[in-house]
Design a protein around this nucleic acid. Sequence first.
DNA 1: AGAGGCATTGGACAAAAGGGCAGGATGTGC
DNA 2: GCACATCCTGCCCTTTTGTCCAATGCCTCT
Lengths: 209, 209
Amino acid sequence: MEQLFVTSSGQLRQRWMQAFADARAALRVADAVSLAPRDPRILWLDASGLDRTACLERVREAVATGSRVVLMSAVPGEAEAFEALNQGAVGYCHVEAAPSQLREIALVVEHGGLWMLPELVQRLMGLSLRVVPTPAPAHPQLDTLTSRELMVAGRVARGASNQEIAEALDISERTVKAHLSSIFDKLGVRDRVQLALAMNNIPTYTSVN
Amino acid sequence: MEQLFVTSSGQLRQRWMQAFADARAALRVADAVSLAPRDPRILWLDASGLDRTACLERVREAVATGSRVVLMSAVPGEAEAFEALNQGAVGYCHVEAAPSQLREIALVVEHGGLWMLPELVQRLMGLSLRVVPTPAPAHPQLDTLTSRELMVAGRVARGASNQEIAEALDISERTVKAHLSSIFDKLGVRDRVQLALAMNNIPTYTSVN
DNA sequence: AGAGGCATTGGACAAAAGGGCAGGATGTGC
DNA sequence: GCACATCCTGCCCTTTTGTCCAATGCCTCT
């Protein structure tokens, strides 16, 4: 299977060539894909030097090409790993991973597996358990919220007060309340507690009974 | 790597032998492990005919032996998959999986990967995203709460108002407030929103930053 | 009996939260 | 231009939430 590395630095190409004799590199996802039009290919994305948004954007783009995507981070973190995998990546490792490890990862990914740092696997499993009973995805109708409302809702979902939200978004507390009223209305909840729970897909007392 | 199959039926051994020439089978986990005392081994558990509890118990036992564990289910389901993986299994597939697929799975698992049905991977990722920021398991110290406090906290965790809690527990709203103050203090949260989130093991804005 | 924890409540008060009404400022599409 | 949505804000009001100080009764342990 083709091994395509996408990086802006190009510093690490030697290591990669050591892992895969036929590895090729490119600056952008589109370039890499055009190097190997055949479908089964692995795209290795170098996340170093990219902020979270740009990184996720790149993962999404890479996944959309139909490739198996492995994200390589300079500072592997839980949040980044999950976000990447959620975008459709099937691997997450250190950007400085040894050639032998890269080959192992390639092997796993080529055969339909998922590869990530062992401790992250552990963590992922622990997380999923408590969500298991959820029968349906049952996401609230978040798409009915405007972008601003989503920001407010997101912060309430993490326990922020109106004052904190106002400061974070640099708007008045009154505006936060206005957004909240609208959110309550759209999502059919009555207060911030129920909103916080709904945002986390947790059923509410009144909705349960 | 040793391939050890644990099954009570023995009906499917032929298929397994077809996948792995050196496969061996046993009735119980302990027997299987004694067949191959060397550490790197894959234990394939046949879940058919076992109820959920027995099945999970077996997975746990198998994981405890230090083996890579793959659970094979006759009726693969989301909940079962997550529970199994949460117990430490690294694979989950159909018990009737084709020999070629079994070999792929073995390959993935041997190299530190995780293998499960593609649609389950998708689901798993979707779930994990919303829990991502959790920095620690951070179970609230619920044992420090008195029984009455626990009742109140439990209802707040499902979005109830003070008034509703008072009515449900047949006490005055004032008492509910008193309990809440005590709860906030003990759990180190500042208001009912953060309490609701904490009770559901969801990290809080202020604890993250 | 006395100490201490727990559950309960009251009154008073302060701080959030939430909503009604009214307005302004941007956009976008018809 | 006009309608419409979104975003932002003010004033003022009610409700809810949360805290402080104080008190009573019950129970257990010493």
